[in-house]
Design a protein around this nucleic acid. Structure first.
Length: 574
RNA sequence: CGGUGUGUAGCGCAGCCUGGUAGCGCAUCGUCAUGGGGUGGCGAGGGUCGGAGGUUCGAAUCCUCUCACACCGACCA
C-alpha cells in the first residue's frame, strides 16, 4: 500500500475525552473514530489490525475442530423468555420492537440462538461432541461505556458453544479450548494469564478468564507469589486466619460515639486499630430463610464480596441492601451504629471476623459503639462463611505462598455451562441406548475489539503504538528520501516495495508528496506502530546501503541492500 | 441512575465574569523555498458559538428549559 492511496488520519494532539493510553493512541494513530457513546467507526488502518486478529482467532478455532457459523445480531424475545433471561438480563439488554410490534433484542451473547439451532439440527449422540463459533457484532447497553473500544457498547466478539453427551466430553472440549485460547493469545503477542473466574450472569459450573495484565484493567486478579494459582478477586477464596482466636483481654464497654458513623471515623477518633473493627451490613434474606433480613459481618478494612454472599442459601440473590428506613424499623438505630450484640435477626460472620477478639462494633443504639467484644463470652458465634474479597498479603487458597493483586483486562472467558440452557430450551439427543438425554454445553468468548486495545495498552512508548508483528496493520514502512527528485531512490524503492510484497509482507510505502517532511513521515510511522522501518536515501544508494530500524530499536543501522530480505526474514515470522 | 464538569472551525483551546461585527495554535488548500526527525515564507478557505425559548436597541457572553459528551460514584454502616 502506498500512503498516497491510503487514509492516514494521524493527529498530533490527544483528544480531550480519551482517558487511557490505548484509547488515546487509537484515536491519534487513526484506528477508530467515535460515532456516539460506546460506538465507533473503524478506519482503514484499524480495520487491518482487526482483521488480522480475527484471522488468528479463526485459524486457531478451525484448528481446534470448531465449525464457524453466523447467527443474527437481532434475536426474538421468545427465545430469551424460554431461557428466562428476558426478565433476568436487565437494562444491558437492548430491546427493540419491529413494525408489527413484536419484541426483539440486539444480541449481547448467543446461547439462546445457538441452543435453539442445535436442538433442531442435532438428534444423535453420534453427532457429538460439536463446537460452533462465530465472529460477530454484539451489543451490550453498558451503564458507562469507557476507555474507547475497551468497554464499548457495540463490539466484536468471537463466541463459541460446544455440545456434549456427558460431563466428561464437556471437560475434554473445555480443555481443548483452554489450550486454543493459550495459542491464540500467544500468537497475538500478548502477556496474559488464565485465571479462575466466577461464572457471572451466564451461569454454570466452572470457568476461566484470560487476562492481559495492565494497570488500566478493570478487574483485580489475585496471584500466589509462589505457585501458578491465579483467580479473579471475585472468586478467590479468603481463608480463615491461621491459629486459634486470641483470648479476650478486655471487658466489653459501651462508648459514646456521636460523631463516628463510619469505620474511618471510628478509627480516627477512638484509636481503635482498623483490624479490630467490624462492620455490619444488613441485606434482604432469601425465601428459604425464616427472617426477612440478615446481617453480614466483615472486618472494617475488608470488602464484602457480593458474589460470595449471594451464594449463601439465606441471602437473597441478587443481593439487596436494606434501606436506611428498613434498618431503623428493624433495629431502632441507623446505619453507622450497627453491631452483632443484641441483634434480633440472623447473622453470618466472615471467617476473619470469627477469629477476631476484642473487637468494636455498633451497639445498635444511635451514637454508641461497643468496644472489646468477644465471641463466646459476649455473644454466641453465629454461622461463619467466606464473605469478603481477598486482599494483598492473604494466604493463597492453593496453600502455597501469599496473594499479590494485579490489574487485568479480561480478553477471553471460557465456561462450562452444563445443562443450564439445554434444559431450559430442551436441547436433547438420543444416546447409545436410545434414551433421551439433555446435552451438556460449554461456551467460550474472546473480545476481539478489546484485544486490540489490550495489545496497545501493553505495547507502546512515547512515540506511539508498537505492534506485535502478527497484528501490525503493516509489517514494514518504507520511507524514501527525495523520492520525487532522485531517480535512483525511486527505482530502488519501487523495486524493494515489489520484492517485499512478493515475499508476503504487508508494506506501507510513504510516497507522500515532497511537502511532507521526513520528520513527519517518521513520526507517523512510529505513531501507527509499524514494527519495521526501511529508509532509502541518495547517500545510502551511493554506498550501496539502506537503513533499517526496528520499532523498539534504540538505533537505526545501515545494511547492504542485498541483506534486507534475509534480515527481515529473520526478524518477522509470518 | 446520582454527583461534578464540558460543549466556540477537523483537533487543542482563548473570548463569557464586565453584552457592542468571533479569535489563536495545529491541520487543510494554493504558492515559493527546503529535503534525514512533526521545516520556513507569503497567501487562502472553513464556525447558524450544542439546540430551543427569553431579556435587550443589540446575546458566544445574562436568564430558563433541553440535548450531547466526559469524569467520579452507585454495599462498605
Amino acid at each position: 500500500m502506498r500512503t498516497s492511496q491510503f487514509l492516514i488520519s494521524t493527529v498530533k494532539e490527544t483528544p480531550s475525552d480519551a482517558e487511557v493510553i490505548s484509547h488515546q493512541l487509537m484515536l491519534r494513530a487513526g484506528l477508530i473514530r467515535k460515532v456516539a457513546s460506546g460506538l465507533y467507526n473503524w478506519l482503514p488502518l484499524g480495520l487491518r489490525t482487526l482483521r488480522k486478529v480475527e484471522r488468528i482467532v479463526r485459524e486457531e478455532m478451525d484448528n481446534s475442530g470448531a465449525m464457524e457459523v453466523l447467527m443474527p445480531a437481532i434475536q426474538p424475545a421468545e427465545l430469551w423468555e424460554e431461557s428466562g433471561r428476558w426478565e433476568l438480563y436487565g437494562p444491558e439488554l437492548l430491546r427493540v420492537n419491529d413494525r408489527h410490534n413484536r419484541e426483539f433484542c440486539v444480541g449481547p451473547t448467543h446461547e439462546e440462538v445457538i441452543t435453539d439451532l442445535i436442538r433442531r439440527e442435532i438428534k444423535s449422540y453420534k453427532q457429538l461432541p460439536a463446537n460452533f463459533y462465530q465472529i460477530q457484532t454484539k451489543f451490550r447497553d453498558e451503564i458507562r461505556p469507557r476507555f474507547g473500544v475497551m468497554r464499548s457498547r457495540e463490539f466484536i466478539m468471537k463466541d463459541a458453544y460446544s455440545f456434549h453427551v456427558g460431563e466428561e466430553s464437556l471437560q475434554e472440549t473445555y480443555d481443548v479450548m483452554h489450550q486454543t485460547y493459550t495459542n491464540i493469545f500467544n500468537r497475538l503477542g500478548l502477556d496474559f494469564r488464565p485465571v479462575l473466574a466466577d461464572t457471572g450472569s451466564i451461569g454454570g459450573a466452572s470457568s476461566h478468564e484470560f487476562h492481559v495484565l495492565a494497570e488500566s484493567g478493570e478487574d483485580d486478579i489475585a496471584f500466589s507469589n509462589s505457585s501458578d494459582y491465579a483467580a479473579n478477586v471475585e472468586l478467590a477464596e479468603a481463608l480463615a486466619p491461621a491459629g486459634e482466636r486470641a483470648p479476650a483481654t478486655v471487658e466489653m464497654t459501651t462508648v459514646d460515639t456521636p460523631n463516628a458513623k463510619t469505620i474511618d471515623e471510628l478509627v480516627e477518633q477512638f484509636d481503635q486499630p482498623i483490624e479490630k473493627t467490624v462492620k455490619t451490613l444488613i441485606v434482604k434474606a432469601s425465601e428459604e430463610c425464616a427472617a426477612e433480613f440478615i446481617a453480614l459481618l466483615v472486618r472494617g478494612d475488608h470488602e464484602l464480596n457480593e458474589i460470595k454472599a449471594e451464594k449463601l442459601t439465606d441471602v437473597a440473590s441478587p443481593i439487596e441492601f436494606a434501606t436506611e428506613e428498613e434498618i431503623r424499623n428493624l433495629i431502632g438505630a441507623g446505619p453507622g451504629s450497627l453491631g452483632p450484640v443484641g441483634l434480633t435477626i440472623p447473622c453470618i460472620v466472615d471467617r476473619t471476623v470469627a477469629k477476631t477478639s476484642d473487637f468494636s462494633a455498633g451497639a445498635n443504639i444511635d451514637g454508641k459503639h461497643l468496644f472489646g467484644i468477644n465471641w463466646g463470652r459476649d455473644l454466641e458465634l453465629p454461622e461463619v462463611a467466606d464473605l469478603r474479597n481477598v486482599v494483598e498479603g492473604d494466604p493463597s487458597p492453593c496453600g502455597e505462598g501469599t496473594l499479590v493483586i494485579k490489574r487485568g483486562i479480561e480478553v477471553g472467558h471460557i465456561f462450562q455451562l452444563g445443562t443450564k440452557y439445554s434444559e431450559a430450551l430442551k436441547a436433547e439427543v438420543l444416546d447409545q441406548n436410545g434414551k433421551t438425554v439433555t446435552m451438556n454445553m460449554g461456551c467460550y468468548g474472546i473480545g476481539v475489539t478489546r484485544v486490540i486495545a489490550a495489545a496497545i495498552e501493553q505495547n507502546n512508548d512515547d512515540n506511539g503504538i508498537i505492534w506485535p508483528d502478527a497484528i501490525a496493520p503493516f509489517h514494514i514502512a518504507i520511507v524514501p528520501m527525495q523520492y520525487d527528485k532522485s531517480e535512483a531512490v525511486k527505482e530502488l524503492t519501487d523495486k524493494l516495495y515489489q520484492e517485499l510484497r512478493q515475499a508476503g509482507y504487508d508494506v506501507l510505502l510513504d510516497d507522500r508528496d515532497k511537502k511532507t517532511s521526513p520528520g513527519v513521515k517518521f513520526a507517523d510511522m512510529e505513531l501507527m506502530g509499524i514494527p519495521h522501518r526501511v529508509v532509502i536515501s541518495p547517500r545510502g544508494i551511493e554506498a550501496g546501503t539502506l537503513e533499517y530500524k526496528g520499532r523498539r530499536d534504540e538505533e537505526k543501522r545501515d545494511i547492504n541492500v542485498d541483506d534486507l530480505l534475509p534480515l527481515l526474514a529473520e526478524k518477522i515470522s509470518l
